[in-house]
Design a protein around this nucleic acid. Structure first.
Lengths: 162, 162
DNA sequence: ATATCTGCAAAGACTTTGCATGAGA
DNA sequence: TCTCATGCAAAGTCTTTGCAGATAT
């Protein structure tokens, strides 16, 4: 059983080591924070949460860890248009948890949906293969987002929905 | 024939007026720049191009105009992960020109593709309707991007492709 | 004539970098 | 022991804001 090394189910430590990185307390804390939440946390969000338990972990470390994690493809970095990046664990190993986003352009609310994902993913995989071949491009990820007005903002907003 | 007001084919002036905005020289120049290019320009890119012909148009105006245009849904603002936003005319009236993006995570090259778009758009429309109903969300746009390594970077890059 | 738009400069917000200290293997 | 990671502070980059003058209708 190739796991149970660092702490928590997946072999985080092994993954880090495998990429030439160390699995430190701050990194572990940051991953745990990402695992615990179902929200789309910004670097500062993560920093604040981590900071409660480990007050000496700094924002810089959060940024640096997220960069490492993104490079290892363990987290995905999103831009929802509000000027700060959001981070999510990939979960891409276990296909469960895969979802796409609905972004409210008025209040910036994000809704995850998993409905229709199967059909989408099926088409995406097909498309990915075709694109890979045509453009000789090694595709490793995709992003799908729908933009519009959420229930609340639909009522409030005028024709422009600003 | 409800056009030919400002300059150039579409009734830009009318559209601006319709939204309570004025159609000024800077705005016209910015739109023309967007129309002329097939690239994904950043605010500064646009500024530099516009600036050649109208040296007194400032970067601030470019940002402000792009914001207005985005609000009017005439341009779409993209984030390709390199820290600066890119802008593209929507073209959404004439369905032609609609494309999605392949983003190279190594060199940040962007490839537009229109292949398979039809199938994708068909599924997207279906999904949009279903999502709109389920979440009572008024969807007005979507974003699809594939991330990976382009031909060049595939050769150069190691297993991580950083 | 008046509300909107523009440009410059300054401010703001998020993210990255430099460097000495501390921790992991 | 030696390399990698961390934290603080400072710097960097893109973007937004304030305000007086210019412009469009």
């Amino acid at each position: 059983m190739p796991r149970g090394d660092g702490k928590g189910p997946p072999g985080w430590k092994g993954r880090f080591r495998g990429c030439g990185h160390r699995f430190t307390i701050p990194r572990q804390a940051i991953i745990e924070t990402l695992e615990k939440t179902s929200e789309h946390l910004s670097a500062e969000d993560i920093y604040l949460k981590v900071h409660k338990q480990y007050p000496n972990i700094g924002l810089t470390t959060v940024y640096r860890t997220l960069e490492v994690l993104a490079q290892m493809r363990l987290v995905f970095k999103f831009d929802f248009g509000d000027g700060r990046a959001r981070y999510e664990l990939s979960h891409s190993d276990s296909k469960k948890d895969h979802h796409h986003h609905l972004v409210c352009t008025s209040c910036n609310r994000i809704i995850d949906y998993t409905d229709f994902i199967d059909e989408e993913v099926e088409l995406l995989n097909k498309t990915e293969k075709a694109l890979s071949k045509k453009f000789n491009f090694k595709i490793s990820n995709h992003l799908i987002q729908f933009y519009g007005l959420c229930e609340k903002c639909k009522k409030t907003a005028g024709p422009l929905g600003g």
